[in-house]
Amino acid sequence: MEFINNIFVNIAGLVRWVFNWLLGWLGLPLGLTDVLMTAVYWVAIVVVCVLCALFYVIWERKLAGYIQRRPGPNRLGPNGWLQTIGDAIKLVMKEDIVPDKADKPVHLLAALLAFVPPMLALAAIPFGEGMAALDLKLGVVYVLAVTTLASLPVLLAGYASNNKYSLIGGMRVVNQAISYEVPQAFALLSVIMVAGTFNLTEIVHFQQQHLWLVFVQPLAFVVYIISAVAECNRAPFDLPEGESELTAGVFTEYSGMRYALFYLAEYCNMFVAAGLATTLFLGGFSGPFLPGWLWFILKTFVIMSVFIWVRWTLPRIRADYVLSFCWKILVPLTLLNMLVTGVVLYLI
């Protein structure tokens, strides 16, 4: 049990031992081990990102099919579960089309950068006991900061495509970012007030000792989920893409591999948001019987399914209403929540 619980930690230890042994054999300074281990962590994070995206794309399509009374993809592989791989191969094989008058370097850069923020954020999220690549003291602040960057590549894409629909989409991204950021930060602040730490692993430990923060801070949880949906540009906040209004919004001029990168990044962003919600509100990797990392995967799976459920249920909100909703409703609510939390903590 203990072995399975720490299986990934043990693997990392083994890899580190192998590196040490190799470097000693080659007569190189042992300090290089840390550099090599960083590379290993990054590779692991990229693998996790891609696996998540591959799984959740097909899971979303299956669940959407269930919601819409249709089978969903069911041809490629056992019951259609290999469909995403087929789609990915198709996207990679497609011709790389860039509009003539697009800002070509920025057009490419946007697609490449899209993948960076979720990878940076995943580094800090503890998948299990001792399983955070970067166990930062200010973990919450770090994750909030890098996930905010996720709107930048979308803005770049909107600007670089030289298409009016893309430009409107790009403007909407900024509109959305300034809307959800503030309530999101306030919602997390009240969690931090209760837990008394910014460190993500310690917040999980706090929940192990007491109880899940979703029961202490239900309002903050709801606000965080709403702003997380907005952050991932998912329906009902999928304004930058806004299929029925802006054809495909910022992604109008993207196809093939470049589009695939955005598509993968969207699911990775969702996974980060779900992972953060799990860590902060649902007890992270804590849970009985099963190994911690499995609990983490299960809990993120539930939150991801909620995201998917919401997407296929609600109509799209209008762009100007997102701003008024976030600032006029969510910000006062979260501020009130913080006030009440503070008073209660002071009295206890």
């Binding site: 959407a64 919601i67 329906a235 999928d238 029925s244 296929w312 609600l314 109509p315 799209r316």
Partner: peptide, 15 residues
Amino acid sequence: IMDLGAVSGVFYPFQ
């Protein structure tokens, strides 16, 4: 309802 962004809304009347 589909044009307003709720794609699922179209499947029930079509049935």
